[in-house]
Amino acid sequence: MKGRLQKVEIIVLLKQVPATESFVEIADDGVSIKTDRVNWVINPYDEFAIEEAIQIKEAHGGSVTVISVGPEKASEAIRTALAMGADKGVLINDPAAEKCDCLGIARILSEALRNVPFDLIIAGQRAVDDDNFQVGPAVAEFLSIPHISMVIKEEIADGKIRCHKVVEGGTVILEAPLPALFTTQRGLNEPRYASLPGIMKAKRKPLDIKTLADIGLDAAKAGKPKTKIVSMKFPPERKDGRIIEGESAQAKAAELVRALSEEAKVI
């Protein structure tokens, strides 16, 4: 690590999402999923964010605050982040927030952070449930700070952050002055376990639960989504394969060519 060591105050944006192996069923309203049998976990990209934040804190000093917008249940995910080594948690739990789209969530998060001193915000590149890729960059925009996406390596020195990101065919190195926000890409680190001593300590760490009013947002305004989910569908089921019968290899090949040309119309 180059340069003068300085304490870094870090914010991690976190979302609790259904575990990828959960059995997903579309709810009766057709625009959401049934959640009663879902197993909830920390969004995997946010786990990279927590791990990176803890590593930066371990190298530079400072503190890690985890913030999430979600129902009461999301406090479990924050508690797990505290068990991994974050210092403080904030959950914004407000019925009005449930109707928000990603831009609304970004608005809430940025308002919550407006009066909090920080040097760095780390967010997952996307949440694996809605796959919107929006919240991190939008928070940076709302807070008027630089944003670097899909980071696989970072260094902090002299009030700046230098990030590596993979692009088609190579790596780009970007630098931004702090405070800044970056989002994570697989390969950044290997998230640690929530150790048993960590779990014991997490119980005594602060976890504030706030409403939209607490952070100075008008619930009626914040809840108005700019996008609407119209319907949810499963991907179409794959049709069975077909085995082409024929007397000889030539006959089979001829039939295949005919089928590709006349039925599938691909050649």
């Binding site: 976990v41 249940k73 479990e76 508690r79 797990t80 068990a83 376990y193 929530a194 150790s195 048993l196 779990i199 014991m200 997490a202 119980k203």
Partner: peptide
Amino acid sequence: MATSPETVLDGLDSESRQMVIDTVRQ
């Protein structure tokens, strides 16, 4: 997660127990 006010039991609260289980799953 159920947090019913029952008689005081030995051991962890259900949230901590779930975290240990999650760590094992990891």
